[in-house]
Design a protein around this nucleic acid. Structure first.
Lengths: 260, 260
DNA sequence: GCGGCCGTAACTGCATGCACTTTACATGCC
DNA sequence: GGCATGTAAAGTGCATGCAGTTACGGCCGC
């Protein structure tokens, strides 16, 4: 999805460019969950036609970052708590696969690259929260990339982005120091090559990230009144088909600001 | 992706319709890997404009069933052997998650539904190969659906389809009897509720499906001369970036027939 | 007879335009 | 004053048209 024409220019791949931009904006919380993404606005902003913007939204929707409702403005996805939990469960399994494949197989250059990345995380520690969240996420994606398995890379990236989005919804102020340390431990274990140890480390790392974030169904940090009220609204309508706490109310609109 | 307007008509969701049709055509091998998918032809066939066909192709590409190369006709994906192996590895982990979640939690109705599906597989045993492959795949998707976790459903479906596509490439005539039996065993274990046992069963099942299919790098059943020759063509070009046995040659064209 | 070149047909990339749906607001009724 | 209603604006769904790229087949030189 991304590795294409890697040297040179992006070969005028407009859809890809927009996707990348939006992905990044979303995971850095420049676009909060629920934010509107009108096709025209996007098109104008990126200097393309609605057709292209629309196509990009389609891709993002396939990745689960955007919600597409027929005849309605697309919005940044607002994962439910349960979905977040599921996402982390899947992520744990996938990343287990990653590190198992990587343990003891990393070149010196790769290890250096990983260290460099964690250094960057360290520097960003006092910067804005969203950036450090993004960097932490990208560390995992970097790991996945090193497996050179396109499928694994794609899935880990996708699910990591989704988890990242989740964090922006549920997580409290975010304490990243320990996560950074755990990243360092991971690298060391990977270099040493003890597969089982590194798998255990990764499992523990993700588990604790998840629990730090998803502490007992804390309601989404008061973003939209409609969302918050959703669980209480059940008995009115005939029977909103949401069986699994998938937010039953679309959520009218939280903030005015959209793409610009 | 699918649960929308579940009763009534598909709400004129043209893209979705085309996607479903193509997916099915692909996994039933009506469209073989490498088959061309020109936008106009698709549009004409389904009575829509190129725009829609194009959008559908985009979605399918995001799922990995279709390959999209800039300025070139889209083709049905041709996974390399290594990709197939990776896909199965991931699939094993994901389905492990599925059955662990399902063990002992299935309703009587669900168990009946599963049995019914396997019965259908049984009936199709003497029919055309592709159909029985599709049914076997859909059994796993049915299982995933029962978790009611949208993310898990999506990933399992996607990867199952990819594996299915792979089978059509690498598998020999296909012996489905044992697979059917294994499906029955799985249902029984799920009903009984012994999580560990059912996880082990699923692992073994998928593993044996994979090895039956991917026996030691059997070259893709002579489909396209160019593909077959691909591994031998290495030393000519400056250095085709394929490091991981991702088919380095695009494959010119195998058969004239495209969508119709 | 064979290999390279070129013109044409096929196809994709993208923007624009029109019809229909939803949303927002202002007006009028109670 | 509050609520319902109608109407205009905003936005999506989709087709079509044009420009640029690629693929193909014949033609020419050798």
């Amino acid at each position: 999805m991304s590795r294409e024409e890697s040297r040179g220019r992006p070969a005028t791949d407009k859809v890809g460019t927009i996707c990348r931009a939006l992905r990044r904006a979303i995971i850095e919380q420049a676009l909060e969950p629920g934010a509107k993404l009108p096709e025209d606005a996007l098109g104008e902003r990126f200097g393309v036609s609605r057709t292209i913007a629309r196509h990009a939204l389609g891709q993002l929707a396939a990745e689960g970052l955007v919600e597409l409702r027929r005849n309605r403005i697309a919005v940044v996805a607002t994962p439910s708590w349960q979905e977040a939990r599921d996402a982390f469960d899947i992520r744990i399994e996938l990343e287990r696969l990653v590190v198992r494949q990587l343990a003891g197989r990393l070149t010196k250059a790769q290890i250096a690259q990983l260290h460099a990345h964690v250094d960057a995380e360290d520097e960003a520690r006092n910067g804005p929260d969203p950036v450090s969240i993004r960097l932490a996420t990208e560390f995992h994606i970097l790991l996945a990339t090193m497996t050179e398995s396109p499928i694994l890379i794609r899935y880990v990236s996708e699910i990591a982005y989704r988890c990242c989005l989740t964090l922006s919804l549920f997580s409290r102020p975010h304490s990243s120091e320990c996560a950074i340390n755990e990243h360092r431990l991971l690298i060391d274990a990977l270099a040493k090559g003890d597969a089982e140890a590194v798998v255990a480390l990764m499992h523990h790392h993700l588990d604790s990230v998840a629990s730090r974030a998803l502490v007992a169904q804390t309601r989404p940090r008061g973003r939209d009144i409609m969302d918050i009220l959703a669980p209480y609204a059940e008995p009115l309508r005939p029977a909103p088909p949401a069986r699994r706490a998938a937010s039953p109310v679309a959520g009218k609109d939280s903030r005015r600001k959209a793409a610009n």
